[in-house]
Simulated scan of single mutants.
Amino acid sequence: MSYPQLTRRKLLEGTAGLAVAGLAGCSAPSGSAQQQAGGDDHPGHGQEEPGHDTVSEPAASREVVVNTARSEGSTEYHFDPHVTWVEVGGTVTWRLESGSHTTTAYHPDNDQPRLVPEGAAAWDSGTMSEEGETFEHTFETPGVYHYLCTPHESLGMIATVIVGDPHLEDQRALQTMPENKSEEVQGKLEELNTIVRDIMSDDQHEEETHSDDGHGHDEATHTETDQHAEETDAHHDEETHT
């Protein structure tokens, strides 16, 4: 399964690129059990839709739209966007647009495997059923957090919050794949892990590029100039002494 190049400034606006992977729509088409676990038919996802946001940089607050979209032969369950990035101490607000859903952390307090940082607080909205209903959670611990909709987890309604600028090699969410979950759920988690790694890798690359183009380049040029000047002075002193 291949993914388009993702950057921290534009995470597949409209999430059309992830529809092929089955993640963008979190769809449960009518038909076989295999199709219900996540088919490739996602009508309408080639267009921009409200809530299909871009991941640019951490913010103090973000909103995630939660909804059920129905079209002919298909029902799609959304956390939108699928990856959200906030600052340490930032707040995510989930707003129910349609359907009945939860936002529930992968945390032992919720009878789930831990796919959030050690020491991080759990959250569970309970079932939200009224249009416009909201639930919010403030993230005090940097890291990567996976979460789910309890009734629709098996249909791929899973998403992620990145908090701060975490070291990916220390993130349990990226390093641990729960064994007691179905292949469909594990596949969605791995897709999210891939997106997170790409976002953070591009972010680190931009910072390194900025450093090289700025102070790093100037410092190297300055060092070479000083060395040339010292060699010239030494040669001049030797000729004068001779």
Rank of each mutant, 00 (worst) to 15 (best):
L115V: 03
S129F: 10
A105F: 00
P117N: 10
T104W: 02
D111N: 14
E133N: 08
G126W: 03
T134G: 10
T127K: 02
T138Y: 06
R95P: 00
G126T: 13
T138W: 07
T103V: 13
A121C: 10
L96P: 00
G90D: 04
W123M: 11
L96Y: 03
T104G: 01
F135G: 10
E136L: 08
D111L: 14
T103I: 06
S98K: 05
G89I: 08
R114Y: 12
A105N: 01
P108G: 05
A120I: 05
W94H: 05
D109M: 13
G90T: 07
V88A: 11
H107Q: 06
G89C: 11
S98I: 10
D111Y: 13
T103M: 02
T91F: 03
W94T: 02
T104M: 10
G99P: 03
H101D: 08
E97R: 15
E97H: 14
T91Q: 12
A105G: 06
S125K: 00
S100K: 13
T138Q: 15
A105T: 03
P113F: 05
E136Q: 15
P108R: 00
H137C: 02
T138M: 12
G132P: 06
W94Q: 03
T102D: 00
E133L: 09
Y106E: 03
A120V: 07
N110I: 11
H107D: 08
D124P: 02
T138N: 12
T103R: 01
T93Q: 12
T103C: 09
E87H: 12
V92D: 03
G126F: 04
T93K: 11
T134R: 13
L115P: 00
G132I: 09
S129W: 04
E131I: 14
T127L: 15
E131S: 15
G99F: 03
R95L: 10
E130T: 15
T93H: 09
E133V: 12
E118Y: 13
M128Y: 04
V92K: 04
F135H: 14
M128H: 02
N110K: 07
L115A: 01
P113H: 05
T138G: 12
E136W: 01
D111E: 14
A105D: 04
Q112T: 11
R95F: 01
E130L: 14
R95A: 11
P117I: 01
H137E: 09
P108E: 03
G89V: 08
T102H: 00
D109K: 14
E133H: 10
H107K: 05
L96E: 00
G126P: 07
G99T: 05
F139C: 09
G89S: 09
A121K: 13
L96C: 09
A122I: 10
G126H: 05
H101S: 10
E87T: 15
G89Q: 07
M128G: 02
F139I: 10
H101M: 14
V88Q: 08
H137T: 10
T102V: 03
